[in-house]
């Protein structure tokens, strides 16, 4: 079966004609090109399941909730889709962060060029006192999952 990819509409058995064999204007025969090779389940690692303790950990790290079982199945599908990467041989390949990796990026001198806009920035916050943003009490871990879910029901959305 295919994973995440749409089934091909064209047969995959054509050989590609090279540019040198051009005979007519329709020579490229684009509609006859082979399409993608579907990735089969056998090529992939076993599917990952996301146990409940990991669900809790992810929610704590991400500070967003799965909301429903569907949210969780969405994650499992996203992982399965990503698993196709493992079909690609990347031995000896360096990870790539940015297309500008071989350039020296512009660095400006470390001096203040603008600012004095604390008032403007503080205006954007819902709760401030003098020149401070006000947060609720800190150092309190996120409540347990059941309590969190109950809170969400109370929320205005």
């Amino acid at each position: 079966s295919t994973v995440g990819l749409v089934n091909g509409v064209f047969a995959a058995s054509y050989t590609v004609r090279s540019g040198e064999n051009k005979t007519s204007h329709k020579c490229l025969g684009l509609s006859e090109l082979p399409t993608w090779e579907p990735v089969s389940e056998e090529q992939l690692p076993p599917p990952s399941t996301v146990p409940l303790d990991l669900v809790d950990k992810l929610e704590r790290l991400a500070l967003v909730d799965f909301r429903t079982k569907q949210g969780l199945s969405c994650l499992e599908k996203a992982i399965r889709f990503a698993d196709q990467l493992h079909v690609v041989d990347t031995s000896g390949v360096e990870p790539m962060d940015s297309v500008l990796e071989d350039r020296a990026l512009y660095l400006r001198s470390d001096v203040v060029t603008e600012g004095n806009c604390a008032d403007k920035l503080l205006e954007l916050s819902k709760t401030t006192v003098e020149e401070y943003f006000v947060a609720p009490p800190g150092n309190i871990p996120l409540p347990k999952r059941e309590e969190r879910t109950a809170m969400l029901k109370d929320s205005e959305f």
């Binding site: 929610e59 309190i140 871990p141 996120l142």
Partner: peptide, 12 residues
């Protein structure tokens, strides 16, 4: 009730 809760619920 706490900073973390406010974060999580705001983001929700």
């Amino acid at each position: 009730s706490s900073t973390e809760t406010m974060y999580a619920i705001s983001r929700h």
